[in-house]
Design a protein around this nucleic acid. Sequence first.
RNA 1: GGGCCUAUAGCUCAGACGGUUAGAGCACCACACUGAUAAUGUGGGGUCAGAGGUUCAAGUCCUCUUAGGCCCA
Length: 1075
Amino acid sequence: MTYPKVTTDPTADPSNGQGAVPGSPKFPLIEEGVLAYWAEDDTFRASVEQRDPGKGGENEFVFYDGPPFANGLPHYGHLLTGYVKDIVPRYQTMRGKRVERRFGWDTHGLPAELEAMRLNGIKTTDDIVEMGIDKFNDACRASVLKYSGEWRDYVTRQARWVDFDNDYKTMNPEFMESVLWAFKGLFDKGLVYEGFRILPYCWNDETPLSNHELRMDDDVYQDRQDPALTVGFRLDSGELALIWTTTPWTLPSNMGVAVGPSIEYVVVESDLPTGTVERYLLAKARLASYAKELGEEPNVVETLTGADLAGRSYTPPFTYYAGSDNAHRVLAADFVTVEDGTGLVHLAPGFGEDDKAVLDAAGVETVVPVGKDGRFTFPVTDYEGMQVFDANPQIIGDLKSGTASVSAGTVLVRRESYNHSYPHCWRCREPLIYMAVSSWFVEVTKIKERMGQLNQDIRWTPEHIKDGQFGRWVENARDWSITRNRFWGSPVPVWKSDDPTYPRIDVYGSFEEIERDFGRLPLNAQGERDLHRPWVDELTRPNPDDPTGKSTMRRVTDVLDVWFDSGSMSFAQVHYPFENTDWFEQHFPADFIVEYIGQTRGWFYTLHILATALFDKPAFSSCISHGIVLGSDGNKMSKSLRNYPDVSEVFDRDGADAMRWFLMASPILRGGNLVVTEQGIREAVRQVMIPLWNTWYFFALYANAEHYDAQGSTDSTDPLDRYLLAKTRQYVEKLTGELDDYAIADACETTRGFFDVLTNWYVRRSRERFWEGKPEAFETLAAVLDVVCRAVAPLLPLTTEEIWRGLTGGRSVHLADWPDVSALPADDALVAAMDQVREVCSATSALRKAGKLRNRLPLAQLTVVVADPAALEPFSGIIADELNVKSVRLVSAESGEAAGYGVEQKLTVNARAAGPRLGKDVQLAIKGSKSGDWSVADDGTVTSGGLALVEGEYSLETAAGDAAEGAATGMLPTGGFVVLDTVVTPELAEEGLARDLVRAIQQARKDGGLDVTDRIELTIGGTPPVLEAARNHEALIAGETLATSYTVSDSGDADGSTAVVVGEGEQAAVRVTLA
RNA sequence: GGGCCUAUAGCUCAGACGGUUAGAGCACCACACUGAUAAUGUGGGGUCAGAGGUUCAAGUCCUCUUAGGCCCA
């Protein structure tokens, strides 16, 4: 039999027997071979279909794919999430579950509109209307599908198995119909209402901006000089309440004044501003900064808190809204500070988020006397038609002179210029204003308590998200504004009467309901059902509640927030409830979702809102939220900074499995951030890919050399084999637990540790047995490789596929079952003993190093003193071999020999126990234990630093002291010690020389390009001790180096020989020729 | 401006309840080992951001300062 049994390597020739498994693999090439095989074999489909869904889907593992917005190529963040989205389903599939995976696309929203506007060179919403909403939306549709092909390529290349052919898109009519159903469901439950929302607004482009657009550029925030006014509003109690504002144009819309409830305010008398004595109200802390207007030490007539002031009424500065219900009162609000201004804040509900929140709570109407072009409208007649910034000077002038509609008694106390950082439109660079925009809301505040309860049923990774970032966000949830005054999105399915005299609102939740009332469906230019604008806007009908028959039902022109789409994904992806009702009920909630941590405010949140509101269930039962991927310089990844390695280049150079490992093993899945570097990815190749591959290469090399076909038996009685099998069992058990817990980073760490044992201990120590063709070694390694490939398959799907198929000839490791540990021996004691063996080797190596005793120099004896020497007995040969000692003595720690080996007792004071009892004196005892000022009395009483210690307050341990002449002592970390005989006899020194020669000859063989099995003719020359060693150890040297002819010559360097230094500076020359 | 988080080796990070010699991986240097492995083994490095306090004892608790990050305004 020849390994590999199957290979994707086009250059491999299985009939050749050797070299079919490349020793220096090009992983990207192997990966492409495996991907091509999967494509041809349709392995993914088979992996899903071979698992029975079970009755009512009970054997299914449900995964929801969070839809990405594909307005560009995938970056590391997408790849990272994609890897997790692949690992968990692969694992669950191997565990026997059926895991359907559909890809999803988020298609609606502003990014698509911005791209379409950019491509068509248009800037404003008017431009869009002029262009035609149908043409514009066609452009949006084209822009979101532009990259779907590239996405598929990347996702396929990263070895993520997901169904693209059966994907879902949020712009499909079926998806959108389910979204309408959800909106209507919320409406019917009384969870939807219409109101205002304050947004940054560009009056030049006539569009509100999203928060995202405020962060689009660093220069969105620019310094700007604005007039800052201090104005006195006349309280009904007579004082002038001083407010400060940098937006004079909002004063005509003033509806209230806010004060900090615990801030201290004063009333002072002054005649400076008006010439007559007036009483002014402001925060005590701000008094000094008004010394110029109010006097250096004005007469304080009253001191009171904000809470005292709350409820007082005043005359508004302008008369337009005088007499509004509940308006023009002093209100307490926590956001008020005394950092600048007067400690009293003018509130205009139409132009400030805080303002609106406070006034909403007080029952004050939101007034917005500014049009979408940023110009004043009725009832602000004095400035009607003026752009708000342009109106500032006139407003200030009127305030000063009391002209226009300024209320009598209002006083302009100060006018100054104020420099501040102010947001500007990233498109047109004009300063933005904050303005109320009509919007529909989901009343999240009504259900947030239930959302919190349902959140308790979700298992979060990392755990703290549950009650931390997500839990707190839900706790402080505000109503969700779900409409946008835009074009490319699911329509708000609300039709309103266009005459307020005959009010009526209709909400539609299906095509059928629409057709029933309007007599037809919304159809696009191609005659297809289409819920997008403008087609849906065309549907109008007479208002049934209007007896005059003149008013018309027209759709609210808004579209829905894209987050409403993605939050509907759980049911809308299958067109629930119009189709697939059984499927949905069996697949909700999802078993598992994963996205980056920011989705606690995005997708996780909107899924949870809609699931709670519509189904009273959580939408998912497990959720991983991972951290953010950063560029190699620790900053956000940025195309212009080129601070991250190109994704395609990494695939081509290191491969998709290497990138997978790098990302999955990192702290990013525990919620931390991750810096992406080429170096880190290469490290994954070095630490994991190469060791695994080389174990396979090693196995194939020697199995092929022996023509051995292993069946993968676990019956070997060899101690090293038994150890590996038991260790493999422990490994798989641990890994299974970690993957069950979605602890992928832990699973990687566990695997890395196991690979170390496999390659750097088991294979290294077993080389000779493979070289000798011991069947049980091949059987053991074949069995372990099979198990390991299956266990690591989710973490390195491409590499393990190539190895597993080469090893077994099977169809795919991903069609195999998860390894059953019961086939492997459970022997924790054996594993523990081997761990101790490695400690012995490590400690003894340190002794050799300290004594400058090179490893090739054999030493006579190593004495190992441990609690249970019998446990190490099976490994004494391994210890002797590894450490190059002639004999290993295993001695019980009980035997009392310790003192003879220069090992002494050491006292350690347990400060934690002794501290509380002894107090300050504990320091004396510690000092004593360190300086040697301690003793153990015959009755066992321990005294240190003159203080008697109680049992538990100290521990007596053995430590290496001065060893006897000719020996060195080293401690073992888990107890016990080793004693190395360091006496180098002439015989040992000579054997050391012989072994140096072997090494030199092997190097010469290698340098000469000889194959491992080639026989050689060997000539050795050199100084007398070298010749002596060569003669006395001919059998060893000739045997190790496969020399059929062996000449020791004192005639100096022969032609073609290599000069080397051996032993302690002895000269040698070796000549190797092919026999 | 308010709130939250972070600061430990050249780098990335661990360090329950305070306990006296602060760990790991990588990088670097030296030596060793090497006919599977650009591998491995052994050894080498830290004023725990700064200042003050509490305590017998502080990387750990408290206060302030500095620097950086996140969220909200």
